[in-house]
């Protein structure tokens, strides 16, 4: 992991994160604007669900980042436990909040889509229930990590929780395959997509756009936490 270890030094990390933050943010917002415009005006409606298919362009990226956020927590937790990476605890805490927000957005946009298409806002099927569980895991993790940081913990306890929560990710992904659910099966798999190209293409724009914005938010939150740490260290030295 030489690349990760080069970032272990907060000063070196900041020298990369500072210029990268606005680049990710503006590139992401630009892609989102183009993707949303294309998804709202250029693409055809679906043969069965009609216009409501357009919600896909915000729902799928939310689901992807809701799950991707937990993957981020798990990777950071792993490198904290194994390599004691000095930025890992901060990275995990920076990812958690946007991850939770995207998990919530996935549930909300899915519910809004469900009403006109399925005829219900919410059903306790395997996919919806497991995604709701992930959202609750985020809330619990954020609370735990905050308590740990306030007590001056080294982040190991939230890291163990972060790794354990990973078990939910394959359950969410395969819930629609293992069980009969109201939610449709996976459209995009390694073998290809069952979404017609004319409907699919803006999804790549919004997916990339949301991911870049997610990255910018994580960098901003990490920078804030690093500055806060510096501030507190300085205060302690001045008080001593």
């Amino acid at each position: 992991m030489p690349a990760l270890h080069a970032l272990a030094n907060p000063t070196r990390f900041l020298s990369i994160a500072r210029p990268l933050t606005p680049v990710l943010l503006w590139a992401g917002l630009l892609l989102l604007a183009v993707g949303a415009w294309a998804g709202l005006t250029l693409t055809p409606p679906d043969y069965l669900q009609g216009e409501s298919v357009r919600i896909l362009y915000v729902h799928v990226p939310s689901a992807w980042l809701g799950m991707g956020g937990w993957t981020g927590i798990a990777l950071a937790s792993f490198s904290l436990l194994v390599w004691r990476h000095p930025l890992a605890a901060i990275a995990a805490r920076a990812v958690a909040l946007p991850g939770a927000v995207f998990a919530a957005l996935c549930l909300i946009t899915g519910s809004i889509w469900g009403r006109p298409t399925w005829g219900t806002w919410w059903e306790w099927d395997g996919r919806l229930t497991s995604m709701l569980l992930l959202f609750f895991l985020y809330l619990a993790w954020i609370g735990l990590a905050r308590a740990d940081a306030e007590r001056g913990g080294d982040g190991r306890i939230p890291a163990i929780f972060g790794l354990a929560g990973t078990a939910l990710l394959p359950v969410i992904r395969y819930s629609v395959v293992w069980w009969r659910t109201l939610h449709q099966g996976p459209s995009i798999t390694v073998s290809g997509s069952s979404i017609d190209g004319s409907i699919l293409w803006p999804l790549w724009l919004t997916l990339t756009g949301f991911s870049l914005v997610f990255g910018a938010i994580v960098l901003m939150r990490m920078r804030a936490m690093l500055a806060q740490q510096r501030l507190e260290a300085r205060m302690r030295r001045m008080a001593a």
């Binding site: 669900q49 399925w118 449709q184 069952s194 017609d196």
Partner: peptide, 21 residues
Amino acid sequence: DNLLAKHDERYMPPQLEGGKH
């Protein structure tokens, strides 16, 4: 008492419906 519609994982514009579905 209640009916829910279930969509499948295929999404396509109306003019492609038919043969593929």
